[in-house]
Simulated assay, not measured.
Amino acid sequence: MARRTGEENRRNILTVATRLFYTRGIRAVGMDTVVKECGVGNATVYRQFPTKDALATAYVEGRADAWFARMREAAGEHEDPRAKLIAVFEVLATDCAGSSYRGCPMLNTNTEFPEGKHPAHLVAVTHKQQVRDWFCSLAVKAGAEDPDRIAEELLIVLNGVYATAAVLDGGTYGTRGVDMARRLIADACPGT
């Protein structure tokens, strides 16, 4: 059996940790569980991630990057900036309706690490700020009179759907989120 490279080990560990942290929660999963599920030794895991905080932070960074990649891809299928914004909520609705949906990793991380200095918390906060800023830039392109306001309102809807869909019927609340976003965008960005 061929030995894995350091990068292959890192990806494997992060893939396993992502699954475990998302389904069970970061604090609920010990490093011993990650080691066991990865099928590698302690030294291999700790060589890549010296602490659980480092692994948790890498997990949150990975989820944030993946979110933007998926949403930008969906938005990129449209020319109209209003349709780009709506596309985000359509992807959200699909995600929330899935059987493996367990909430927003950023909101979950913020709940688990409310301490303002924890590196995973800081990544989650930065991600939400970047989402708001992206919404704002799309609102500017869509001709919104108050792009900051619509960006903030859309972020509230996004986070509200994420949180509510994790507790109640994800399909229903995902669809409601799309409807709310459409109304807000139509009101704020009437088009030319």
Rank of each mutant, 00 (worst) to 15 (best):
R19D: 15
T18P: 06
A64Y: 07
A74N: 03
L122P: 02
Y46D: 00
A64P: 05
R3D: 08
L107Q: 13
T18N: 01
T23L: 11
M71D: 00
T192E: 14
T111D: 14
M1V: 12
G116R: 08
C104Y: 03
L55F: 07
A93T: 09
T33C: 10
T23Q: 15
R176Q: 14
R176D: 15
V140Y: 04
V157D: 07
N42A: 14
A64I: 09
G191D: 05
K117A: 14
Q130C: 11
V29L: 02
F89A: 01
C38I: 07
M31H: 09
I26Y: 08
V125A: 04
V178K: 08
Y46Q: 03
T192L: 13
P119F: 08
P81K: 03
A142C: 08
R24E: 14
N12V: 13
I150W: 01
G191V: 05
L14N: 06
A139E: 12
E8I: 09
V167C: 07
A142G: 11
E37G: 01
R24M: 07
A165Y: 03
A87W: 10
Y46L: 11
F68L: 12
L14W: 12
A64R: 04
G174S: 10
V29M: 02
C136A: 14
V34T: 02
A17I: 04
Q129P: 01
E37P: 08
V178H: 04
R72P: 00
C38G: 04
M1K: 10
T109G: 02
H127D: 02
G30K: 02
I185Y: 00
A66K: 06
P81I: 05
A97F: 00
M106H: 10
R72S: 01
C96E: 11
V35D: 12
R102M: 06
P114E: 04
T51S: 15
V161P: 00
L138M: 11
L184E: 01
T44H: 06
K52Y: 00
T15R: 15
M71R: 11
V29F: 00
R102W: 03
A75D: 04
G25R: 05
V140I: 15
V178M: 05
K141L: 15
Y173C: 02
L85V: 04
A69H: 11
G171L: 10
K36A: 15
E152S: 13
A66T: 05
R11T: 10
Y162E: 14
R3W: 09
W134K: 01
G177P: 00
Y22L: 02
S100I: 07
K84P: 09
S99H: 10
E145G: 09
Y46A: 04
R149C: 11
A2P: 15
I156T: 14
R3Y: 11
K141Y: 07
V161M: 03
R24A: 12
K117C: 09
A69F: 08
E112G: 11
T192Y: 10
M106V: 08
A120M: 13
D32I: 08
R4P: 02
L14V: 10
N42G: 10
